[in-house]
Amino acid sequence: MATPSTGTPLVRLDRISKHFGEGETRVDALREVSLEVFPRQVVALLGPSGSGKTTLLNIIGCILDPSSGSMELDGEWVLRDGRWLRGDLRRLRLDKIGFIFQFHNLLPFLDATDNVAVVLQLAGADIATARKRAGDLLDYLEVGHRRHAMPAKLSGGEAQRVAIARALANSPRIILADEPTAALDSKRAGIVMDLLRKLAVEHDAAIIAVTHDEKIFDRFDHIFQLRDGRLDGHTTLHAVAAETR
């Protein structure tokens, strides 16, 4: 059941534009994109290759400078008229945003617990506290029995759960997911999406995912379709399903 768009948005984009190059080589990756994502919502950014969805995800993740526009994250205006208002974007990411990657991107030299604990340590937690919290998160994501396994020994689904635990480590309210189910089969993809929805509800968080994975379209509250850098409207899952058919 779709989560209603009520209350204060966790992510608010106001006419975000991004272009690369100048003159004849100028490419407009995003053109005045505005959108809002509310707590407990799981939304998708959808669009053909080159439509600007990854660029948009990078801007929301504070790892790419937009050309213009403003952005509010978790009640704080962090970007105004194309200028960052916060000097330390690294700290902003650490505190407010969790990332889930297509290929989980776990650090191969740390076991499952430490892959999660490292984020907490970066935020200033001592190692014992970090490992305790990491263990709790792994238990919560039902992968606690694999806490001492190295990433190479984890199955795709287990690795993605550990990656989700890492994204949740600092209790961020915004979780950005880049093709979170692309490396998983239908069954596991469904399990991961159910998990993300559960997290959104229980952590009062917003989840924004870039995906091409048709088998999970029906798991999103809203789908933002991008075409040539423009938001093509706020689409319901039924419309997308009909279009993709």
Binding site: G61, R93, L94, F99, L107, L122
Partner: peptide, 16 residues
């Protein structure tokens, strides 16, 4: 490089 990019993305400071 990929691991370093991941570390940066999750908030690791340059000194780390």
């Amino acid at each position: 490089l990929k691991q370093i990019a991941t570390l940066k993305l999750i908030g690791a400071p340059n000194r780390t």
